[in-house]
Design a protein around this nucleic acid. Structure first.
Lengths: 406, 406
DNA sequence: GGGTATTATTTTGAAATCGAAATTACTGTC
DNA sequence: GACAGTAATTTCGATTTCAAAATAATACCC
């Protein structure tokens, strides 16, 4: 007569889920290592592992040749055929989806382009379409769906509350809708937070207890991990640093070059999102062209897109580079402020800008270091997880919440 | 053969301690209420309560007349004679100490003035002196000491790591020293964080899970409560918003009145601590006098102290008021930034400035609201706990960590 | 004044988890 | 190739905590 409504690890979905999580995060652990990791008695870990092996979710692997004395450990790995999970991540312009196996390995991914004019209904349809495409011709069961949603969400009711950049996007019952359509549990999370989860579980944040992930796309937001847990805030609105009131480097204010790196301006009400996001860069590039600025971007037909600007910067175009550097300095200021307030071990930048690497990160680091000597202990890096970062994080969200039925 | 090395509530000192905490925070709870609060089975709560009653730490009180049906609950209150705890809180200029009984009621308090020239050794001596004064002629045992320390601390080794405003204050083994002298456990915490604890346990933060406490004294720092727990950061350096790079209102930059409320300036590297702390106000007042500014402060002999400025503002002196308002606007900006990042339920300002009430809070609120419409859900208030806020919090720190010996 | 509804607490037996003591499966050594 | 050394796992009670049922103490209604 199993009961298990509460457990010692109350803050945790269940001990089984926690064990699976550890095994996935750090494949090939032994019972004893798991016990140590989760602070369980070895006997307890043994009981649960056996249960999961018998249920077919874990596999005992061959103990490969070892050198040390003592009884060799039996390594445990997740059974890839334990089930599949789906992750979706989107914002104003792009929708990424992925399906992962039980060991968290991506099996397939799908990208769809969204238009700013797409309505909430159209976006919902595209989400369902993407999921259908990925699960077609594969009969293994889907166990859960995770969705990284832009803007505010309510993780209790699984409703997407609001997002500025999609019209009509408010109080969308995403959880109920997808749950009804696919018949599996659906988990919602704000998409920068699901990126942070991806970093925590298999990215630059692995093993860290305190870090901040800053996503720069149409908007700018931060996913904060405190003590190994996501920060949500009172109304699940934490991390909206896009609304921060920030200083503006001259290049971004009126296009004049700065006299010193530290020469910035203050504009009443300048928001980070309007100063240092991808759309802000596009706008600044366009202003530059109108000013007859000498740049390779002048050859682009139509208004230059963010991809044009980043490509130009990559090719050494000095105007494009000056924009990237100016935005980098702003984010250096952001990193400084975030560091002083949170004292994280690491700040991880994600998005196309961060994908430029040191071209973007150098001015960020330089400025952060200039502003605060406390930055010594702080690593500023970019996300290495690539475009599907958020989608994989969303899949992991579902994966990690899921627990075997009894 | 009691053992109890681990318990279900692993993140918690012990169940006994947790129960005492709840009873102290919300006197007169019944066994059932405690069970609900701590998510225990009623039977479990009963076992522990009985144990604490038998050990003399809790007292069952008369069930006062009630109106509702059903068996009346037996209320439990802490036994005031269970033992005493000491709390100390200091920064560059003041040292406050208090001794509280087992139910957390302050029995006695002591204030000492520190001079900026005091060395670390002199301050240590004053701490011991304050404790001696309070415990003289009272034989009830002291069970623990909590200290709110300015600057960085290491809560594991109980060493005060560093503080800018006291010379020679680095790596002071405060815990070991006081422990040896008084023979009881000593707990260290950064003093803004111990203020935040005081607010959490019996101030404006009671019952909240997410709030930020901003202390404005010689420096400026924030104590952040996330999910009911203090935020420490990777190196226990979280909350140092005094190092934030911030905009500067004209009044504080060069004394000219602003054309609009939103007209601020950006000075390369202006730190919040140099712009909007008590010492910054003194400096700005002094600059005003040198400019022959018309103000009641001109009558003060010597350089005006912060008390002079605050008193003048209180009496309606327009120059002093303009300083307070300008500083208020800066903290409005701070509140906005903090709100967007953390999404707390409340921001609590502490310190002499906040004690002015709406004189200070009105410009804070106004600016925060101007900058962010998200501020609708956010309450901005001042601390009502008074001068001994930090000391009481420090005492509570010791009180809450303490648990009955078995 | 006795029944009934209602809520608090205690009793009871079971599940989860533990710590310590076997037991197992190796490596290395003579 | 027996034997000591070592580390992983299992076995075996013991302890903590639970859930559900039983009991206690009241208010309310007739």
């Amino acid at each position: 007569m199993p009961r298990r409504i509460k457990s010692k690890h109350q803050h945790v979905a269940s001990l089984e889920a926690e064990l699976l999580r550890r095994v996935r995060a750090h494949g090939g652990l032994s019972r004893v290592q798991l016990a140590r990791d989760l602070k369980l008695a070895p006997s307890t870990a043994g009981i649960y592992v056996d249960r999961l092996v018998r249920a077919g979710f874990l596999i005992e692997t061959e103990n490969t040749g070892r050198e040390t004395a003592g009884r060799p450990p039996t390594s445990l790995v997740p059974n890839p055929d334990g089930g599949r999970f789906i992750g979706v991540d989107f914002e104003a312009r792009n929708l990424m989806a992925t399906v992962v196996d039980f060991s968290q390995k991506p099996l397939r991914q799908v990208h769809k382009t969204l238009r700013p004019t797409d309505s909430a209904a159209q976006i919902l349809a595209k989400i369902e379409e993407a999921i259908d495409e990925m699960t077609a011709r594969d009969s293994r069961p889907v166990l859960g769906i995770g969705v990284g949603v832009p803007g505010a969400i309510d993780p209790v009711t699984n409703v997407a509350v609001h997002y500025d950049f999609i019209k009509g996007w408010s109080d969308v019952p995403l959880g109920a809708r997808l749950g009804a359509r696919f018949g599996v549990p659906v988990f919602l999370e704000n998409n920068i937070r699901s990126m942070a989860l991806a970093e925590l579980w298999f990215g630059a944040g692995r093993g860290l207890r305190n870090f901040v992930c800053i996503g720069i796309r149409s908007g700018i937001a931060a996913g904060v991990v405190v003590n190994g847990h996501l920060l949500h805030g009172a109304q699940h609105r934490a991390g909206e640093i896009g609304h921060w009131v920030c200083p503006v480097p001259p290049e971004l204010a009126d296009g004049t070059p700065p006299r010193r790196n530290s020469e910035w301006r203050w504009q009443a009400g300048a928001r980070l999102e309007q100063v240092a996001s991808l759309s802000a860069i596009e706008a600044a590039a366009q202003r530059g062209l109108e000013r007859k600025q000498e740049t390779a971007l002048a050859d682009v037909k139509g208004e230059p897109t963010i991809d044009d600007v980043l490509a130009a910067a990559h090719n050494g175009d000095s105007f494009a580079l000056s924009l990237v550097r100016a935005v980098g300095r702003v984010h250096g200021w952001v990193a400084h402020q975030v560091n002083e307030l949170f004292n994280p071990e690491k700040i991880i930048f994600a998005g196309p800008l961060a994908d430029l690497g040191d071209l973007f990160l150098a001015p960020v680091r330089e400025t952060a270091r200039e502003l605060g000597d406390a930055g010594r202990d702080l690593a500023i890096v970019n996300s290495k997880l690539g475009q599907y970062n958020g989608a994989v994080g969303a899949a992991a969200l579902a994966l990690h919440q899921w627990k075997p039925k009894r």
